[in-house]
C-alpha cells in the first residue's frame, strides 16, 4: 500500500514540476552513462532534484537517489515519507558534531548497491547572487573512495526564479536541465584541483545571462 502511494506521489510530483516549468533536458554529446554514476548539480531550490529526476529517462531514473539533508527531511512524518519512500533519498546528517553515521559511507554503500546519486556539492541552497558556491569536499572524498565512478555535471537553470526562498506559490517559468559529459577523477589529482575542475565543468553548462545580446 505504502509503495503504491509513494509511486503515485512520485508521478504527481513529476507531473506538477512539468506543468509549472515545462522542463526540458539538454543531453551531452556522448549521452549519459548507462552504468550507475553521480549526477552533481547546482542547488538553489528544494525542487532541484525533482527536476533532475523528472527529465531522466525512466530506466536511469529508477537508479537515481538524491542525497539530501536528514535534518530537513526527517522533520515531520510527511516529509519523512516524501524523502524516504517517494524519492528514496540517501539522507545524510550535515552537522558534523551530531553525526551518528558517516555520510561518505552512506553514499558509497548506495553506489555499491547499484544506485546513482544526485548530489549538490555546494552543500546548501545558493541564495546569493553568485552563480555557484565553492564546492564542499564531500564529492572529493566520495570519488577517492570509489575512483571508478563517473561524474556527470548537471546545470539546473531558472528554478530559483520559480520558487525563491520563503515563497509558497511557484511562478510558472521555463526551466532547462543541461547534462555535461561524464568525467572521472584523475590519477594523483589533489582535492583543490579536482574540485576546481568539477566547478568549472558545471559552470560551463550554465547558459549566458539574459539580455546580453548575441
Amino acid at each position: 500500500m505504502k509503495i503504491i502511494i509513494a509511486e503515485f506521489a512520485a508521478a504527481a510530483f513529476v507531473l506538477f514540476a512539468r506543468a509549472i516549468t515545462a522542463v526540458r533536458a539538454i543531453w551531452p554529446e556522448h549521452g549519459l552513462p548507462s552504468r550507475p554514476c553521480v549526477y552533481f548539480a547546482n542547488h538553489s531550490s528544494h525542487g532541484d532534484f525533482v527536476l533532475v529526476w523528472a527529465v531522466l529517462p525512466p530506466r536511469l531514473r529508477k537508479l537515481a537517489r538524491p542525497v539530501a539533508g536528514a535534518e530537513y527531511w526527517l522533520k515531520s512524518k510527511i516529509s519523512t515519507f516524501i524523502g524516504r519512500d517517494v524519492f528514496n533519498a540517501v539522507l545524510i546528517e550535515r552537522e558534523r558534531e551530531k553525526r551518528t553515521q558517516d555520510p561518505i559511507a552512506l553514499m558509497t554503500s548506495a553506489i555499491d548497491d547499484g544506485s546513482s546519486l544526485i548530489l549538490f556539492p555546494e552543500g546548501t541552497r545558493n541564495l546569493t547572487d553568485a552563480r555557484l558556491l565553492p564546492f564542499k569536499s564531500g564529492l572529493f572524498h566520495l570519488v577517492s573512495a570509489r575512483p571508478d565512478v563517473e561524474l556527470v555535471p548537471v546545470w539546473i537553470n531558472n528554478l530559483n526564479r520559480v520558487m525563491p526562498k520563503g515563497e509558497i506559490v511557484p511562478i510558472p517559468l521555463i526551466c532547462t536541465v543541461t547534462f555535461g559529459d561524464a568525467m572521472r577523477i584523475m590519477v594523483n589529482e589533489d582535492k583543490d584541483a579536482f574540485l576546481e575542475r568539477m566547478q568549472s565543468a558545471l559552470l560551463a553548462l550554465a547558459p549566458k545571462p539574459l539580455g546580453t545580446g548575441e
Binding site: 515545462a22 531558472n158 526564479r161 525563491p164 515563497e167 506559490v169 511557484p170 511562478i171 510558472p172 517559468l173 521555463i174 539574459l210 539580455g211
Partner: peptide, 27 residues
C-alpha cells in the same frame, strides 16, 4: 495564454519583489 505568458516571463527582468505580482498574473 498560460504557455505564452510562461515563455514571456521567462525572458524578462524579474526580481524577488515581483513574486506576488507574477503569481497573480498567472493564477
Amino acid at each position: 495564454s498560460f504557455a505564452a505568458l510562461r515563455e514571456f516571463i521567462t525572458l524578462i527582468n524579474t526580481r524577488r519583489a515581483d513574486h506576488w505580482a507574477l503569481a497573480s498574473a498567472f493564477f
